[in-house]
Design a protein around this nucleic acid. Structure first.
Lengths: 218, 218
DNA sequence: ATACGTTTCAAACAGATGTTTGAAAATAAG
DNA sequence: CTTATTTTCAAACATCTGTTTGAAACGTAT
């Protein structure tokens, strides 16, 4: 009898606990890291039982992968990717250098700001970055699924600014050094805040940083 | 009778095992990280007994601290600090902009190259960076003991190039963004190598990168 | 209503971890 | 040599970890 009328039926209980666990994983992995988060912490945060992780994801490692996949998707939809999605690679060549420069800085700024003001807070982005940096399978997975395309687009922009080839070694190095600035500030937030004598990146702080990214060529 | 004649007496066995444990810690913490290195792995690598860590350092955490302190000292003597030690802060003001620019780039290059060609290999530097980035007590310790002075010197250089105050917010941001480039390339080595399509930073690779650091102002 | 597959839950399990213990060995001092 | 102190070592300990188990609760279809 109870089919679609009951609210809790719109998606099965199973799917609900799966999502609750992924949310808990994003929060706890982001705060304390994968290793320092026990499955008991996770199921408590998700409000479910100890056996749930193994039942739904086959184990803690399975939950990590599901979490990364979820975040990879989320990054494409709402993350730095969104800022670059508006750019048409084919049109870049018709831009003036000044326009391209301006676009590049704008992309950097919004990418950085988005990474620091996400739905789940900055922990969200830092967890992904930590995974990305660590090395191992997940690094390659994330590189293939998310980073690689956005990096290619960035190279086209940089190459246009320097009258170079997007695939050249020079362009690759210049581009990764642009990424490095934004990424490191997220990754090494504790150290960076000490160096800047700030409490956090809130308010106009992210905007101030965005103004000083090194993106000029001439 | 046996006093200084026996070779093994020049420093007590205790000190020997302490150093062996610290070396093992640098190697294993650097390779697999603190959490994934067991005390059994450590004492095996150091060629001593399971109880040695607790006896000499009071515990695994004590060994970590001793290791960080050792590396902090080492960084001052042989690390990026060495490259900056040659610079006299008082003389910077008398340099031309071009000279200062050149020095800044040279410091960046040698810092990066040294971090990638150390005694214990790049693992050495990456372990410290990871600790530095993580947050917590060790971040503050390392910031106070090592980073803070070198960062102040970097700010003087940058401020001279931009006719700004070394303590200004602008200078701080610009300076940390310079650090970010070198630091991220070490920290995120797995990802960076993927993006650059390289196997490692060996040979002239480090030099190529050094040429492209963003340090120009005008 | 009954039977069936799915999902939850409490309890127990097996393994690894850091630490402690107490005796043996090595070193230093008397 | 004898004694006292320091250092090593093997074994046991206590705790925490991820995982498994089997029964109970739930929802669904016959």
């Amino acid at each position: 009898m109870v089919k679609q009328t009951d609210e809790k039926q719109v998606e099965g209980r199973a799917e609900q606990t799966r999502q609750a666990l992924i949310e808990a994983a994003i929060k706890l992995f982001g705060n304390k890291g994968y290793d320092h988060t026990s499955v008991r912490d996770l199921v408590k945060e998700a409000g479910t039982n100890l056996a749930a992780i193994n039942y739904h994801f086959g184990g803690k490692e399975g939950l990590r992968q599901a979490t990364i996949e979820f975040l990879a998707q989320d990054f494409k939809n709402h993350g730095p990717g969104q800022a670059m999605a508006a750019i048409d690679p084919a049109n870049i060549h018709s831009l003036s250098k000044d326009e391209a420069r301006q676009i590049l800085r704008q992309v950097m700024k919004s990418a950085f700001m988005q990474a620091n003001q996400r739905k789940f807070g900055d922990k969200h982005a830092r967890y992904v970055l930590r995974e990305l940096v660590q090395g191992g399978e997940l690094t390659e997975y994330f590189f293939d699924k998310v980073f690689s395309k956005q990096f290619a687009l960035l190279r086209v922009l940089v190459a246009h600014l320097t009258d170079d080839d997007p695939e050249s070694e020079t362009t690759r190095v210049r581009s990764i050094l642009i990424v490095a600035q934004s990424a490191f500030l997220n990754l090494a937030q504790p150290l960076v805040l000490l160096a800047l004598d700030w409490e956090d990146f809130s308010g106009d702080k992210a905007d101030i940083i965005g103004e000083h990214f090194w993106v000029n060529h001439e």
